[in-house]
């Protein structure tokens, strides 16, 4: 029973966090977030697991394959992965 209580509390905390962040962000903040550059997202997202990769590590074709792999593996949103990999290809 204690197990389920803890699980329920954790789920509730995540729900509250979601509602809190939804309610606390202004239109300007959302716009700024939506306008983040690929370079910025590249710096923020890749290091959540590993170092930011060098754009020169692979060619553009390979990056397209890796884009699909990483979008699914790291559970990135479509807009995140598109911006990150468009940046990588442009810097390659």
């Amino acid at each position: 029973m204690k197990t389920y209580k803890i699980f329920g509390i954790a789920t509730a905390v995540i729900g509250i966090l979601t509602v809190f962040t939804l309610g606390s962000c202004s239109t300007e903040q959302v716009t700024a977030y939506k306008n983040k550059s690929g370079a910025q997202l590249w710096g923020e997202n890749c290091i959540r697991c590993h170092n930011t990769p060098s754009p020169a590590a692979y060619n553009d074709t390979d990056w397209t394959t890796i884009e699909m792999h990483m979008r699914i593996r790291a559970n990135l949103s479509k807009e995140q992965s598109e911006k990150v990999f468009d940046f990588i290809r442009s810097a390659n």
């Binding site: 966090l17 979601t18 962040t21 939804l22 962000c25 959302v30 977030y33 699914i72 559970n75 949103s77």
Partner: peptide, 15 residues
């Protein structure tokens, strides 16, 4: 089934 989406300035992912 998995995915991710933006909510405001947060990102939610699920599986």
């Amino acid at each position: 089934l998995r995915g991710a989406f933006r909510v405001g300035t947060s990102t939610i992912n699920y599986s």
